[in-house]
Computed example of a mutant assay.
Amino acid sequence: MTDDPPPGRAAGDAEPPDTPPPVHLAPDAPAPAVGRGGRRRDQAIALGWLVAIWVLLWGDLSWGNLLAGLVIGAAVLLFFPLPPVTFGGRLRPGALLVLAVTFAGELVTASLHVAAVALRPGYVPRGAVIAVPLRVRTDLNLALTAEVVSLVPGTLILEVDRDRGVLYVHVLDVRGPEDLTASRERVLAVERRVVRAVGSPAEVRRLNPELVDRRNHP
């Protein structure tokens, strides 16, 4: 299969020397390779997240937990290296604050709900597993959204389908279809807050496809 030459140029003519070849990237294509400085920056960000998760799991902010988190995080990055996940987003302090405050509120309300279910005499809660397709399918968004959802009592990530960008979530105390819908909406709300806090402008726009379609078709 051959490409036809553009108008005004013969088939044997060479490309102009100063014209770079076109690059076409799919919306969810992996990011280009980064240099040593970018790699170190990504490792530092990953180490910071591992330390934060370690402290959250222990539930105690202390120098001992911070030091242990640094050691464990460094060991994980050294002995269990994962494919590089480049950070092409933008840190937004306001959205980060919203993410943290909302997470703290959900942590308290979910803990009270689980405690009430556990202490209710004779009540047997029903659980369910739901599939939630995310709108931003990058590895970073999948990991952050899954971690935030798993840290809230009553919800647990059972599996992550990386290829399709789907989270399989176990939810507690399901009484009807409306509870399943509400659980999906809560996971998508977590994704929205995560992307708005650390995502790129293109990823933020992807959360509102109707706005993009409105711009393209006024």
Rank of each mutant, 00 (worst) to 15 (best):
R192V: 01
A14R: 15
R184I: 05
R192W: 01
S62R: 14
G105F: 06
L188V: 05
A26M: 03
A11F: 05
D179M: 01
S111N: 15
G35A: 07
N216V: 01
V76P: 03
P125V: 02
R215G: 08
P121R: 08
A146L: 04
E15D: 14
P153Q: 06
G88C: 03
L56D: 07
D179E: 08
L142I: 10
A46K: 03
L57N: 10
P125C: 09
V108Y: 13
V55N: 02
A143C: 05
R137A: 14
R175G: 08
L77T: 01
V34Q: 11
Y123Q: 06
D28G: 11
T19Y: 04
P121W: 11
D213F: 04
E159I: 00
A182K: 05
P7Y: 13
L91R: 04
L180H: 05
G88D: 12
V187G: 06
L144T: 08
E191K: 14
G88A: 12
P7M: 04
L156S: 12
G94D: 04
P121C: 08
S200D: 04
G38L: 09
P121H: 12
Y123W: 15
G154R: 04
N208A: 12
V187E: 10
P201V: 06
R135S: 13
W58T: 11
V204R: 11
N216G: 13
V190E: 03
L211M: 00
G199Q: 04
A115P: 04
G122P: 10
A100D: 07
A104T: 15
V129A: 07
P22V: 10
L142Y: 04
V152P: 01
R36H: 01
R9L: 07
L70N: 09
S183C: 10
L50E: 14
L70R: 09
D13R: 11
V71T: 09
S111A: 15
T109R: 12
